[in-house]
């Protein structure tokens, strides 16, 4: 993975983005969300911000083993 496809800005270099793990969404799930995460080598859901572009937060689904980006969506509007 060396590029992400920003819904606003199109395909952009990875260095324009900043990584963040996903956030726990339900109240009461913070501990599990932070300390009990189970990594899947084939599937990772991540949040990336286009920090040197439109500043949009993206939800990126990718396969860390192959480096393939499976899906990129804009966060917000019910997507978490």
């Amino acid at each position: 993975m060396s590029r992400l496809h920003c819904p606003f800005c199109g395909p952009r270099e990875l260095r324009e983005f900043r990584f963040h793990k996903t956030l726990p969404t339900e109240p009461g799930t913070a501990f599990a969300g932070i300390y009990e995460r189970i990594d899947n080598p084939e599937l990772s859901v991540e949040h990336w911000q286009h920090v040197e572009g439109c500043r949009g937060w993206l939800r990126v689904t990718r396969n860390p083993s192959s480096g393939a980006v499976l899906e990129t969506r804009l966060l917000g509007g019910g997507v978490a």
Binding site: R18, H20, L23, T25, H47, Q49, L75
Partner: peptide, 13 residues
């Protein structure tokens, strides 16, 4: 700013 934006767009969407 990133931190605020992240929460605005997810938790407190």
């Amino acid at each position: 700013l990133s931190h605020f934006e992240h929460y605005r767009d997810t938790q407190w969407n």
